[in-house]
Amino acid sequence: MKKDFYEILGIAKGADAAAIKKGYRKKAIEFHPDKNPGDKTAEEKFKEAAEAYEVLSDPAKKQKYDQYGHQAFDGSGGFGGGGGHGGMNMDDIFSQFGDIFGGGGFGGFGGGGSRGPQRVKGSNLRIKVKLTLEEIANGVEKKVKVKRKVQAPGVSYKTCSTCNGQGQVMRVTNTILGRMQSASTCPTCGGAGQQLDKKPAEADAQGMIQEDETVSIKIPAGVVDGMQLKVSSKGNDAPGNSVPGDLIVAIEELEHEFLKREGENLHYDLYISFPEAILGVSKDIEAVNGKVRIKLEDGIQSGKILRLKGKGIPNINGYGNGDLLVHVNVWTPKELNKEQRQFFEKNMDSDNFIPNPEKSDKSFFEKVKDMFS
């Protein structure tokens, strides 16, 4: 089970941006590879802290994490679809969080400024996947075709002439305190330490071509409309010594013919006739996992709500299922034949037909209040 991101950074849940940044900096100093050479445990904790900061420092990601936990980003069995720190390596960390490491040094350690060429990450791809309510309730594996940019066969790269393969260029500035040296990402190779050497005719100026690829996406049960999942390394490649970007999958929930979703609960409108309401009847109710038979007692009132426990949508974090709420509506006929009309005229003043609600019968507003609480 993955550790809580707030716990990893040693901060309180709901911490603000400043506390998140401070917590990450503290952990990164403690477990920095330059301070703990050859210590695999420290390296893992360093990566855990980077993964936690990647999510909590992004307001949109933080909101999803606070609401849904790790499942908000679980595209196929683990964070980012690959488990284990979202596929991040040390180059990724120093590349993405250079502002935290100070650009050229961090707490007396090498940080992002002394580690040589970076592995440039390709751009992300975004797609929308439409899901039925049944697929959302049960979880589903979808196969989608995406157009990815990949390095063309036969393309070759050479050492960048600007930075000599270091990925960085050094600048010396004269200040009142003396000569200050700083490092910045190479503008020619973007930090990769390589630039294009040879490319086939069909490749673009960066040595890339487009290819169709079928990607399998495991979608957990309980996702909601608008949620985004991430499948690592299924985005575009980048030139040279690079790592692929990610595939971002946006969920779109299709409207169901009979069921209406409200969080993890489902609502179903059941219409019955006067005779059925008077005599009682058994009815088949549409549910996400097939039909469910319920028995309506004789004399049931219009507006009654029947709650079928556990027949709703699963909680995305595995905390059980919501319920299916059946709203009973007694259908009033608009036209009657002569015989039917005479029957109701004859019984108009009958005690059995005069409304006489019991104290236990709830009003419409009480039922609405109960439904939402």
Rank of each mutant, 00 (worst) to 15 (best):
K61N: 05
V330G: 03
V224T: 15
M170E: 15
R115A: 02
L308T: 14
I278P: 00
T41S: 04
K62S: 03
N236P: 03
E253T: 12
A250E: 15
N124A: 08
I272G: 03
M88C: 01
V281S: 04
P239Y: 11
A287N: 14
K346M: 05
D66R: 06
K27C: 04
G108A: 09
V140L: 00
G107W: 01
L324W: 08
S232D: 10
G107C: 05
E262L: 02
K145W: 01
A18W: 00
G108E: 13
S57I: 06
L133C: 02
K283G: 03
L247K: 04
K26L: 06
V172I: 12
T173S: 11
S233Q: 13
Q301I: 12
A183I: 05
N265M: 01
Y6N: 07
A72M: 01
E211V: 15
G322A: 04
N138W: 03
M227V: 08
V243C: 00
G78E: 10
E253Y: 05
V224Q: 10
N174M: 06
G116S: 06
E366I: 10
V292Q: 10
F274N: 13
G116W: 02
V120F: 01
P275D: 15
L254A: 14
E255M: 02
K47S: 10
E286M: 05
K40L: 06
E141R: 11
A201D: 14
C189G: 10
K128A: 09
A60I: 07
P187L: 00
A50F: 04
N317H: 09
L177T: 12
K130L: 02
S161A: 11
R25I: 12
L125Q: 11
D361A: 03
Y53F: 14
N124I: 01
H32N: 14
A152D: 13
A60P: 01
M170G: 13
E335R: 05
E345M: 07
K130H: 13
W331Y: 13
N124P: 02
E358P: 00
I316S: 09
L247D: 09
G191L: 00
D284N: 15
G78A: 08
S242E: 06
N347R: 13
M208I: 09
L56S: 10
I217V: 15
A42H: 07
